[in-house]
Simulated assay, not measured.
Amino acid sequence: MQTFEKRMIANGHQARYWLIVDSEDGNRIITFLPGRKELHPVITMKFSVRPGQGEASGFDLGDMVCSGELGEARSTGHTPDQGMMIYLSVPLLLDCLREWLRGQTKTLEFIGADTSFGLTFRKEKRHVSVASAAGPIGTASAQELAETVLRASEQLAVEALASLPADDSARPDYLAAMSAFRSFHEH
């Protein structure tokens, strides 16, 4: 995905426009946004545990939702079901993103644990683009993306991690991945 900025005159008014194209699909135009001084891409993420699974376990199913200015990807509402083992998938996402953001690889294909739900992250010149199999989701700076994913993982930890049994190995793994990502993000 690439983003272009152009000053144009349209209907007698000069304004700045943003063109976002899918560079891996023949430069297909995704969207054309008018008139903002600066494009402030925003990606949001939410992780949740599905209710009604009995006693909490590190293998509990849950969902991811990733939203942006171009679309949304969610693991809910699909046939076949795309719910994932959320307490294993979030640490996997944190670890994969940490290594990818620090490395030179341009693309990261993330697929959650025991699901077909996935997200594709691509490093562009000034930002990171996020997409799913259904299409583009949005863009953000690497810093904004890291902050978004860290906040969502911390929120799930506050809301649900304490419900896991003390001897469930998913709990320390989750906390270790979050701690490593936080250290990476702060430096």
Rank of each mutant, 00 (worst) to 15 (best):
F32Y: 12
I29Y: 01
T107A: 08
G71Y: 01
G58M: 08
L97T: 03
S169M: 08
E144K: 11
Y87D: 04
A160Q: 10
H127P: 00
I43H: 01
L161C: 05
F117R: 07
Y174T: 05
L92R: 14
I20F: 01
L97F: 03
R50A: 12
D168A: 04
H13C: 08
G35C: 09
G58P: 07
G52W: 10
A73L: 02
S89M: 03
T44P: 04
K6L: 13
H78W: 12
H40D: 12
E144W: 02
P165Q: 04
A180G: 09
T120F: 02
T115A: 08
C66R: 00
E24Q: 14
D173H: 14
I29R: 05
A157E: 15
F47T: 06
T120V: 04
V90A: 05
R122D: 08
S23Y: 02
E72C: 10
E147G: 12
M64N: 09
R98P: 00
I29K: 07
G118K: 05
A133T: 07
E109T: 07
Q82H: 13
T120Q: 08
M64Y: 11
F4S: 06
G77W: 01
L70G: 01
P165M: 03
R50W: 12
D114P: 00
K6A: 14
L93Q: 03
F4M: 09
A73N: 03
P165R: 08
I43T: 03
W18V: 09
L156F: 06
R16M: 06
T3D: 01
T107Y: 08
G12F: 07
Q14H: 10
A142P: 11
E154W: 04
K37T: 13
S23A: 15
P136R: 04
R36E: 12
K37N: 14
M64Q: 09
